[in-house]
Design a protein around this nucleic acid. Structure first.
Lengths: 333, 333
DNA sequence: ATGAAAGCGCTAACAG
DNA sequence: CTGTTAGCGCTTTCAT
């Protein structure tokens, strides 16, 4: 019995009611008389009926599915950040009883939103095109981890600026002056913000930023290594590093180990993410933790409201948290 | 201009043709005369038209979306195996220009397949209920990594038995006799198969299986540790380990390091998966590599055929490959 | 509380 | 090659 063929009509016939009643029962069961209700329930069970969601949607109903759009750059499935977003959004949706349509796009064709009720866009690298198109099409939309300039768009972001500021100030308070920053890809807003926080922590503490201490990476170890070698071949190598990710921080630690630079005695390190994969090495990394789970939950909540009824845009910035562990020490003169 | 409201009608009007022609153009553009074609193209671009996929589906068309169903057990997003499946299926679908509806279910409600053209089910833990229901509903279906007994169901699996057999025989050929196996959760077929391969490698080489050398885990480090401690507190600890995953193998290596058991001199280790995350420690792990990418590609291909037309079930078993690196040595008497 | 009926946007005959 | 038209399965008025 191919019950995919079972329609609301079959249920109605079996239950001896009209299809309208069945529809009502499914969507808000209390509006149907009790005896009919029981009959409908029975019919549904016996026939193994499941509503056709696309038919429902066509008739104005909901698909109960949200899209998550993530730019599909190389290595995305090895990126702790991207995986965290996917994981937490999937989990938040699961709790809300909503399905996930995952769009990891590499192709140029933009995501067709007709299969979802709303869309969450993660800013990993810039994806302005997708966002503009979705706005134009009036698709309920929330952007994650990017403060969108268009004030009509909702977002949930992390205060990367402040997170960076606090981390660097923490290093300054430990007596460090030669603090390097291994930044992430500056096309990404969070990388810019962290760089901003780094710079401001300097100036607000009466220090000057030295461009030689700023290296730009794509959040990966390989480029971090290049920058490290540059910095440590200079006359005055840094005594501390603030890194754009825990992975990059791991690379700093590896570099230190290979070159017999004791951490934290000779070199302090702070990462970003609180990535459990980077905890292994025995050294517990001091790092800035991002509230991925809450970010996802808030995004889902906002999107639910948006899909329920017209809602003014919500723009949320969450706090990160400095997790103090073992890789920062006072600078010894 | 909320172009989500733009329908095929609008395009037809703008282009001065019938909606049927527009539909034809979209689905098989060559069946439309050239001047009309150009007009339609123009209209589509100007109006920013995108077809409504659910309406298309209702009318008998395709959604161009496949579902991937994965049981949502705790820690799934930290499982290399699960992530590999997701990654490779996502990638194969991307190449095929098909969208991914990811269903990681924890709730009891079964996945409603009406939003997809076909479904890939990954066997991580047993999920017979989902599969039976989908079969009953006649949903195009491919199971990944499990040889389904129902001969009407297509699957793409890995020859776990053989992979295990070869690994253990490799150890035997290196003079090992006290070979332990840290098995995975035996509810999962691949764990059973690997255990089978382990046992048969013994008997076919004239050796006897000693149950004390078989420990069952849930593929995780914690349970591996327990089994390790048991085995190494016995009179005759193993000289070699064949593990159900690289993670478990990593735990064996950690255990060795902590207890000053040199690897591979005093203890040989083989893992399963070829998980790059387990390569760090300086020691290059000898392991059995699974063809995840090919598995996903084949699954997608089969499903595409199935959704195109009625197709006899395809049942594919792919070979794994022993990757010989540094963690196995000849047993010294 | 309930049923009849009008679409939702599209595809696939069918007729020309 | 092209247009007309009948549904696909469901939700939602509108009557009753």
């Amino acid at each position: 019995m191919a019950s995919s063929r079972v329609t609301i009509k079959d249920v109605a016939k079996r239950a001896g009611v009209s299809i309208a009643s069945v529809s009502r029962y499914i969507n808000k069961s209390f509006q149907v008389g009790k005896n009919k209700r029981l009959k409908i329930e029975e019919a549904i069970k016996e026939l193994n009926y499941r509503p056709s969601l696309y038919a429902r949607r066509l008739a104005g109903g909901k698909l109960n599915t949200f899209g998550l759009i993530i730019p599909g750059y190389e290595g995305i499935f090895y990126s702790y950040y991207a995986l965290s977003i996917i994981r937490e959004v999937a989990s938040a949706l699961d709790n809300a009883g909503i399905d996930l349509h995952l769009n990891i796009y590499r192709k140029k064709d933009l995501f067709n939103p007709s299969l979802v009720d709303g869309v969450i866009v993660a800013d990993i690298v810039s994806n302005q095109e997708q966002v503009s198109r979705l706005i134009k099409e009036d698709v309920p939309l929330v952007v994650i981890n990017r403060r969108v300039s268009d004030s009509g768009v909702s977002f949930v972001a992390v205060d990367n600026y402040k997170g960076a500021y606090e981390a660097v100030e923490f290093l300054i308070n430990h007596g460090h002056k030669k603090i390097a920053h291994l930044a992430g890809d500056l096309k990404v807003q969070c990388a810019q913000d962290r760089l901003g926080g780094y710079k401001d922590a300097f100036s607000k503490n009466g220090l000057k930023v030295n461009d030689k201490y700023v290296g730009v990476t794509n959040f990966s170890r390989i480029q971090a290594r290049e920058e490290l070698e540059k910095m440590f071949s200079s006359k005055e190598p840094p005594t501390a590093f603030f890194c754009c990710s825990d992975e990059v921080a791991s690379e700093v630690i590896s570099f230190g180990e290979e070159n017999s630079i004791k951490i934290p005695e000779k070199l302090s390190v702070i990462g970003f993410d609180d990535n459990p994969n980077c905890l292994h090495s025995g050294l517990m990394l001091t790092t800035v933790r991002q509230p991925f789970a809450r970010m996802a939950q808030e995004a889902v909540k906002i999107l639910q409201e948006k899909t329920a009824k017209e809602t003014p845009p919500k723009r949320l910035t969450l706090e990160s948290k400095l997790i103090i562990r073992d890789t920062v020490s006072f600078l010894k003169k």
